[in-house]
């Protein structure tokens, strides 16, 4: 692997988050790799995490061991309760006013190289605030160590770009790991599908949206129509919205919301559904594919840039994958750079 591959991938993105498909996907390894590359490229870093990563107990020794190694000059934000786990010489710069179960989030500057233990806030708004603070302090890149959960895929509000980490610990069947990773990476790559007019109409509407109103149709000319019904199957059948190709959906889109429509005979060809960002899609792969077959074009308002998929062929549960095969099959399934963290 090239020594500055991540640096190249991250060019043009101020803030990048790491999302893991599962525990032991090699997220910390990737993060350390990133930190090392950025350090060698003389790029400074601000670092925090979404909540607390559960992975700190060393399996072999049973002791707590921070694993993220930062360079002198890096900024980081972590809960006060974890300061004693950081062995870096850390200058306390400020208190964030954000509270976590492990104490208030403290903002620090590393005065030496060393290990740090991270637990940041878990709310998107707070993470975004920290990320902005890092950049205001003049760091080159703001990194957010993401959570291990498919449901909290990084929101665009928190970071410009995301790196997806997956590995053999996700499932013992390689085909499943690959299929699910490919599916998640497709969700994360959904594009902005509406023209300027439509986007402007939606943004205006959102500012004064009535609480109970979650749907908005927009026609070719950018005119909005609020359906009185909120059930998808009903409004899509309604003739008065036939001329509206765009349907905005506020909040999360779930399997349950789509099922009645998917099993009906409603013609949805040419419709474009728009949600805020990929994190709002709580859809199984099956539903997602059925939606595609119906001819629905699923899009987002805020694109997030998926930079790469990293794989870890070693499983914490013993069933390791063949490195070469895993890498090759993942590359075939995903239309993105795929990197093996152990290389």
């Amino acid at each position: 692997m090239e020594r500055d591959l991540f640096v190249k991938l991250m060019a043009g993105h101020d803030s990048v988050s790491l999302a893991g498909m599962c525990k032991n996907a090699g997220k910390t390894t990737v993060l350390n790799r990133l930190l090392q590359e950025l350090g060698e490229a003389q790029l400074s870093v601000g670092l925090t995490s979404i909540g607390r990563d559960g992975e700190t107990v060393d399996v072999a020794t049973g002791t707590k061991k921070p694993q993220i190694y930062v360079r002198e000059g890096s900024l980081f934000a972590t809960a006060s309760g974890l300061l004693q786990n950081c062995d870096v010489t850390g200058e306390i710069l400020a208190l964030s006013g954000m509270h976590t179960p492990l104490g208030e989030v403290v903002l620090l500057r590393a005065k030496s190289d060393g290990f740090i233990d991270l637990a940041g806030p878990s709310m998107n708004l707070q993470l975004a605030k920290l990320s902005r603070w890092f950049l205001q302090q003049g760091v080159d890149k703001s990194l957010i160590d993401g959570a291990i959960s498919r449901k909290s895929l990084c929101s665009r509000r928190v970071a410009d770009a995301v790196i997806l980490c997956t590995g053999a610990s996700y499932h013992r069947n390689m085909a499943t790991v690959i299929a699910d990773t490919a599916y998640i990476s497709r969700l994360l790559q959904l594009k902005r599908g509406a023209d300027e007019k439509t986007v402007r109409r939606i943004e205006q509407w959102r500012q004064s949206r009535p609480q109970s109103q979650r749907l908005l149709f927009v026609d070719e000319d950018g005119n909005g129509k609020e359906p009185t019904e909120q059930r998808l199957a009903d409004v899509l059948r309604d003739k008065q919205y036939q001329d509206c190709p765009y349907l905005w959906m506020e909040g999360a889109l779930t399997d349950a919301m789509l099922k009645p429509m998917l099993f009906s005979n409603i013609d949805c060809k040419g419709r474009t559904f728009i949600v805020e960002d990929s994190s709002k899609l709580l859809l199984g792969q099956d539903t997602f594919e059925k939606l595609e077959k119906k001819g629905v074009h699923l899009t987002v308002l805020e694109e997030i840039c998926l930079l790469a998929v990293t794989i870890n062929p070693f499983s914490a549960y013993g069933n390791h994958f063949d490195q070469g095969e895993f890498l090759q099959r993942m590359r075939e399934a995903v239309s993105l750079p795929v990197l093996d963290v152990l290389h």
Partner: peptide, 10 residues
Amino acid sequence: PEKRRLPGFY
């Protein structure tokens, strides 16, 4: 101790 009157401390 350095009398810089900056907020940081270590």
